[in-house]
Amino acid sequence: MAAKGDVDMADATAKTQDPNDYADLLQTNHSDAFAFSDTEELALQLYDQLKELELQQSLLQAQQSGTSRTWRILPLVTENDAVSMIHGSLTSKLASTNKSLSVAEQNNIVANQKNRELAQTMLALAEEMKAQSVQDIEDPQLRQRVDAVDKELKDSRRRVRTLKGILSAMIVGSGINWAADEGLTELVMEDEDD
């Protein structure tokens, strides 16, 4: 027998389920399994309203505390913006400098190539000059002057070799550690052909 306020439970009609519809999983076959009295429903509604008010209060507090954090972060954001602008400026200058360097390197390569060509031309001219001897000069006075200059050059070279030998002997004989000093080593070990 059913008492007053009891709810009769009856099975709901079975529905065909769509395999892709997950909402059916949340449904029960007994739709009245969670039937509440009026007092219980009122208590649940009041509880839901209380929770919603608490949530709204929490959101408002978060917004207010977020505003004070914004004021603390604002100088850092401004500094970050300034650093970003300086970084952009320096990056632009670096790119410009790299471009100038690249142009200078290209000009240097061209100048080195031109120097090589001029050096080859000079060597060719020097070889031509070597091929000419003093005997090829037809003017007798000019030939005598060239012979005199050539003799002076040979005498000068002989004196230089003698002085270099004396200087080397003085350095070695002095007892100075000439091998440790690059300049003295060059003086002592210098070739006589230089």
Rank of each mutant, 00 (worst) to 15 (best):
A2D: 08
G5C: 00
G5Y: 01
G5S: 03
V7H: 05
D8I: 08
D8R: 05
M9F: 07
A10P: 00
T13P: 07
A14K: 11
K15I: 11
T16I: 12
Q17S: 14
P19V: 01
D24H: 12
L25F: 13
L25S: 12
L26F: 14
Q27G: 05
T28V: 02
T28H: 10
N29K: 10
H30G: 04
S31W: 08
S31D: 10
S31A: 11
S31Q: 06
D32R: 01
D32Y: 01
F34H: 02
A35W: 05
E40P: 09
A43H: 09
D48E: 10
Q49E: 10
Q49W: 07
K51L: 13
K51R: 06
E52D: 12
E52Y: 10
E54F: 04
E54C: 00
Q57G: 03
S58P: 02
S58I: 00
L59K: 09
L59I: 08
Q63D: 07
Q64S: 04
S65W: 05
S65T: 13
T67Y: 11
T67R: 12
S68G: 04
R69N: 15
R72M: 14
L74M: 02
P75D: 01
E79Y: 05
N80V: 03
A82P: 00
V83L: 14
V83D: 07
I86D: 15
S89P: 00
L90D: 12
L90T: 03
L90W: 05
T91W: 04
S92F: 07
S92I: 01
S92N: 13
S92C: 07
K93I: 03
L94Y: 05
L94E: 03
L94W: 02
A95Y: 00
A95D: 11
S96C: 03
T97G: 14
N98L: 08
L101F: 11
V103P: 04
E105G: 00
N112K: 07
Q113N: 13
K114Q: 15
N115M: 09
N115Q: 08
R116M: 02
R116W: 10
A119N: 10
Q120M: 12
Q120R: 12
Q120I: 04
Q120V: 02
L123T: 10
L125P: 02
A126L: 14
A126V: 03
E127W: 03
M129W: 09
K130G: 02
K130E: 13
A131V: 00
Q132V: 08
V134R: 10
Q135V: 04
E138I: 04
P140V: 01
P140L: 00
L142R: 13
L142G: 06
Q144N: 12
R145C: 10
V146P: 02
D147T: 07
D147L: 14
E152T: 06
E152G: 07
L153T: 03
D155L: 03
S156Y: 13
S156N: 04
R158Y: 07
V160T: 12
T162C: 06
L163I: 03
K164G: 11
K164L: 14
K164A: 15
G165F: 11
L167C: 11
A169V: 05
A169R: 06
I171P: 02
N177C: 00
N177G: 00
A179P: 04
A180H: 01
D181R: 02
E182K: 10
G183N: 12
E186W: 11
V188E: 01
V188H: 01
M189F: 01
D191W: 05
D191M: 05
E192C: 06
E192P: 03
E192L: 13
